[in-house]
Amino acid sequence: MSTRHVLLGLLAAGPCHGYDLKRQYDARFPQARPLAYGQVYTTLQRLVRDGLAAVDGTDSDGGPERTLYRSTDEGSRELALWTDQITAPAPFVTNEIFAKVVVSILVAAAGAPTGPDGRKPDAAAHLRAQRAAHMERMRELTALKTAPGADLSTVLSADYALAHLDADVRWMTTTTARIDTLTAEVNAA
């Protein structure tokens, strides 16, 4: 996710300081990678440096003095370009699970080395264990989105994560069903 564009988008509603931007970010993107305060302030400083945002005075509100930021006209244009731009479907998906399956087959065929406990790699068992881990996370996300009072942002964020985990599970299911063929193919190559 482009943090600079998201912060610019939050500033579109009016001037805001870093602390409130961080709170808004957390509320609107509950399943996103956590955003550190330091990253908020660094990003705001870069937006100012690039002319996309500007300092709009200070606000103390009874507490410590805080710098307010606002979007500039150039920032608004940049934001419009970003929201108009279609996100390119990723041409390649990093699939660590597939890599582990293939490597497990290769190592098992080589007969060595084994792990510290003496076990040989087992691609099928690995896929089943990975499925169990995925399902555990999917149960957590389902509980999160069906909790009483869950807002739509939480539901949609959880749905996005669930759909991706579900795609992994489907892939693992079909791969498990074809593991003997894959093993023969990998070992023959």
Binding site: M138, L162, V169
Partner: peptide, 8 residues
């Protein structure tokens, strides 16, 4: 369906 099973 894994998404349905996740309710369990």
């Amino acid at each position: 369906d894994a998404q349905v099973a996740a309710y369990a």
